[in-house]
Write a protein that binds this DNA or RNA. Structure first.
Lengths: 154, 154
DNA sequence: TAGTAAGTGAGAACCATTCCAATGTAACAA
DNA sequence: TTGTTACATTGGAATGGTTCTCACTTACTA
């Protein structure tokens, strides 16, 4: 039922964006909506093993690019050479571990204002007509701090 | 003379970072310090035609990766499939045109505070030990606004 | 100045992503 | 419901940015 809710939600999202509703798009978007693991194309393909065992990589790439074009999804690079994707629900940014590549979502009250302010300043200073932004913070995740002996595990 | 100043400055930068001073590193860094065109590896190779006609791509990649590791240079993606590089002088971020890929540097009084605040919040919320950040704003550059008939050229 | 750890360069290898052409199908209208 | 058509999917080939390999060279240190 949670599953059903997700499916209905994503179905509606696709329709709202006037995207043709194919099983592939439906299932891929549902996967992104219900997972917050910032998957790569490969991860998605694995995760869809049961539902779409024969899906082609091209389809996943095409679908994700379409979603990105429609601002349903954002692209992320964590430095491992492949692109990660994240469903764009509510405003947030990412903290990326420079050691293991782990990506976590971060937000805080007032973050949207910071974001708006950055865009406003940029418009004034550069003359660009702003359509979006991307903020990332790098560092060592708690586990890697322990692993590297920087922080004790207590 | 401007050229000499740049060369001396970069020489010092390399020494400060305890990097072995090879002609290749020296010249590549000088190129980055004196150009603000956010070059790709290909652009750099072309720009070094006179000074280092026989430099290998591997060397440029190696050198840039070393600079990135030492936080002398930052990596940028503007969506054209290749990586762009930018000498990290004073704190700034980038506005990237979604139509033509043009990248411009932006900063404003108080930007460093915004940056510090973002890092502080992130540390509190995620437990990451922060080492850096990356902020980008997307939109249409003034020229593309005109080209696409969104803004009149007056 | 000699020894050596590190850097360079040419080309091969890698692999994420895109392209292509044939096939399949969702959406819309009659 | 059916037919039409434009769009989506597929798998394999092609692309191209980046890394790897290894023989050769060189900047640093004692």
């Amino acid at each position: 039922m949670a599953s059903n809710a997700v499916m209905e939600e994503t179905l509606q999202v696709l329709k709202d964006h006037k995207l043709r509703v194919t099983p592939q798009r439906h299932i891929i978007l549902a996967y992104l909506v219900s997972h917050h693991n910032h998957p790569t194309v490969e991860t998605i393909r694995d995760g869809l093993g049961k539902e779409l065992p024969n899906i082609g990589s091209s389809t996943i790439y095409n679908t994700l690019n379409t979603f990105v074009d429609h601002h349903l999804v954002v692209e992320l690079q964590n430095g491992d050479g492949s692109t990660h994707y994240d469903y764009f629900g509510s405003p947030h940014y990412h903290a990326i571990c420079t050691n293991c590549g782990r990506i976590v979502d971060v937000t805080y009250p007032g973050f949207d204002e910071t974001e708006r302010n950055l865009e406003k300043k940029t418009a004034e200073l550069s003359g660009y007509m702003i359509s979006g932004n991307h903020m990332e913070v790098y560092g060592l995740c708690p586990e890697c701090q322990i692993k590297l002996g920087i922080k004790s595990n207590d």
